[in-house]
Design a protein around this nucleic acid. Structure first.
Lengths: 148, 148
DNA sequence: TTAGGACCTCAAGTTCCTTGAGGTTCAAGA
DNA sequence: TCTTGAACCTCAAGGAACTTGAGGTCCTAA
């Protein structure tokens, strides 16, 4: 538990991301400036790796960098109320759910288009393909009145 | 049904997108080079608007530009088999479904984290918040063996 | 000693637009 | 006819989150 210094390659491997990404996080200030060996190579310890994993985990959860910065600030200052972090999480959860709903609708629409084509026209040529006619229709959401 | 020439502003409005986007589509070759008035203003007709709506619709369905280019090529050459378009659509549908599954998992994970924090720690400070400890754990997907 | 792998620093590319600056053109009202 | 003011024009750069590439240095092990 003493000398846990490792190269950027080892740290990146532990966090499961490319080396270039680690440098990028340092560049934008998500990661602190790494110590260096005399030759210039970066050095990382367990704390760095934990932070890196934290960041990657958040990114896997699709959080934008800005939100991760905010979370790290709360974490770095151990005295701030945990409720702040929970708020951020709920905010992000809402964004994920909203995107989820969009994608569900999207899937339905695409599947319907494909089914129609498969049933009625897919032996023919593109000139009569229903996919193209459907795609040329403006999307009908809810019950919006169409312009005459 | 004769003189349906309109400005870029009118065309953009019909397609429901910003004017700058229409110019951008021309720049990257998704839209053909528009005719111009003597003063330089672009002119569009119904065919252009239909193409624009097609493109926007595809983008709403989250298709990458490259796939739209491919679809338009099939559509432009009316003789190509409709099955090609259906293939592209299925391909895209698969991408959408895959993303959908990712997001569903994401939502579960986030919701679980938030619930845990809300139940056990959210009165406290960030130093003991479960959100941070959870986020520092590498994600456990399926049953992958953990490195020792 | 030397090979080659890992590392270094810029710089530019990716995707799909959006925003901004600085300058024309056009339609319409006075 | 003149004059607004909106709509248009052309670059150029920015944004998110990295990735890729070029050209060069450092380190480890045989």
């Amino acid at each position: 538990m003493s000398s846990s210094a490792m190269t950027i390659g080892a740290a990146a491997k532990r966090a499961g991301c490319p080396v270039a990404t680690v440098r990028y996080y340092e560049e934008i200030g998500l990661m602190p400036e790494a110590e260096r060996r005399p030759g210039g190579h970066r050095l990382y310890d367990e704390t760095d790796v934990a932070r890196l994993i934290f960041i990657r985990r958040c990114r896997e959860l699709d959080m934008p960098i800005g939100k991760i910065v905010a979370l790290l600030a709360i974490s770095d200052d151990g005295a701030r109320p945990c409720a702040e972090a929970l708020d951020l999480t709920h905010e992000h959860l809402a964004a994920v759910r909203s995107r989820l709903n969009e994608l569900r609708e999207l899937e339905r629409t695409l599947a319907a288009f494909a089914a129609e084509c498969a049933q009625t026209c897919c032996q023919g040529s593109s000139a009569t393909c229903t996919l193209f006619s459907e795609l040329r229709e403006p999307a009908r959401r809810g019950g919006a009145a169409r312009p005459t």
